[in-house]
Write a protein that binds this DNA or RNA. Sequence first.
DNA 1: ATCCCGTGCGCC
DNA 2: AAAGGGCGCACGGGAT
Length: 552
Amino acid sequence: MDERWAIAPAEGGGALLVALHPDGQPAGDIVQEADLATAVASRPQVSRWVWRSTAEIYPRLLAAGVRVERCYDIETAEGLLLGHAGRLGEPRSAAAAWARITNQPVPPDPPMRATEPGGEQSSLFDIETESLPFEALLRVYADQLRRHHDTEHPDRMRLLTASESSGWLIATEMDRAGLPWSAESHRALLSELLGERYAGGGEPRRLTELAEQVSTAFGRRVRPDLPADVLKAFKQAGHQVSSTRRWELETIDHPAVEPLIEYKKLYRIYTANGWAWLHDWVHDGRFRPGFVPGGTVSGRWITNGGGGLQIPKVIRRAVVADPGWRLVVADASQLEPRILAAISRDHAFMRVAGDAADLYKAVSDSAFSGDRAKAKLAVLGAIYGQTSGDGLKNLADLRKRFPQAVQYVDDAARAGEEGRLVRTWLGRTCPPSGSQLDAAQLEGPPADEPQVDGRRARARGRFTRNFVVQGSAADWAVLMMAALRQSIASLKAELVFFQHDEVIVHCPADEAEQVAAAIQAAGDLAGTLCFGTTPTRFPFGTAIVECYADAK
DNA sequence: ATCCCGTGCGCC
DNA sequence: AAAGGGCGCACGGGAT
């Protein structure tokens, strides 16, 4: 039974509720109840809750011990529908949607609330309840159902909205659970890498030493954290470099290079994941990243404040399962080329993507006489938009063997260059050309010259080329997460981390094998739900470990 | 004192 | 060997 109810918070912790017809119209009278969580918990027959914002309501439900199976997040849907209409960037709040329906001035979206470091649950109660009347919210919802119907692929668009709404449920649950984090291991690691901190503050011992070594090598005081200073010093020493990026420094033969590179590496750890970060972001043995589903235009998630999706490999030593528990770490192997196979419907490419072990090997056997490195470069070049180098010839070979797959991304690039929109498989749409959210707009100086326009157009082409693949991969990934969430719901296991194509589940040791199997099953199901029946496979590399650093 | 931007590097 | 896409974050320095 697909029973839908809409709900909104009311004064004093209460709630307004109403049952809904399939077309979104109210199926009865609006009722008011005294307690939001009780109102939800007492209606187990409801299979999908319709609400303005998961971020507003769901933390309160979870705090009261109430989990929901499915929801429809109206503001998330508004963003996706606006995007589909080529209006990404316009206000997506329910109030804005209502204003558009009623031809009133559209209010700007409220600024994004900064996440409290550590994701304290209490801060989530502070979100102001929007003053849009419940009846207006219901009208917005019904209007959105109609707009779904009018999209290019209504079934896919509905699946996208449902999936993205699930993403918000998952994000909220993951932030509540938190990633198990050993502050003790983290501190030990920092001491080992950086040395002691001086009592009076300032950089730790190892950084001070390396900075001195750099100065010694130059024969004068040089501050390694000032690129301009470093550039000048190298120039005086007779080495011309255009930046102090690591790969460029590595080409120089000079005794300052080695301590300088080491300094930069450790300085990064010190500033981004050092003692201050640990203090701000890890509490009670958990790191709560503040996940934001669909935070990027391509649909990838972002996190709020703690750099949760950029945890350096070396720092993963601090991610440790609870005693008797394990981390099941799984990443989807070679996901983007497999996605390209599925969305392009290139039969030959779908078949090589049916090789569960190694797609690049399968491509190289098929088109590059066994040269795996070449095959990989060609495939990545197609996805990212190669502009130079040997890759172009490899790309030509790839096109010969898999014309439809390469055509798909070439078409996306062409569309982008010509200022048209492109969409992911499920219908998430790129920003319109020239809009605020169009990254290619920033490319180069703001001049009217044809050369600049051309470069900008090509930059947008590379963006849209990648968008259809990266974004469709994000479509798949969230569906996979939603399927996984359902299949482990009866276990003690908890989803605790998600990073583009990688998930971590924290579970008792005796559940680990079952969880690992559930992840693969969820990937397979997501593939079928998203793309229908195809030969393409979505295999995972899975590790059952006590420490994140031991995965892979 | 505070904001903005370029630089550089972490992740996928 | 690097490049080609997407991000967040910290820093210093200049502008305000």
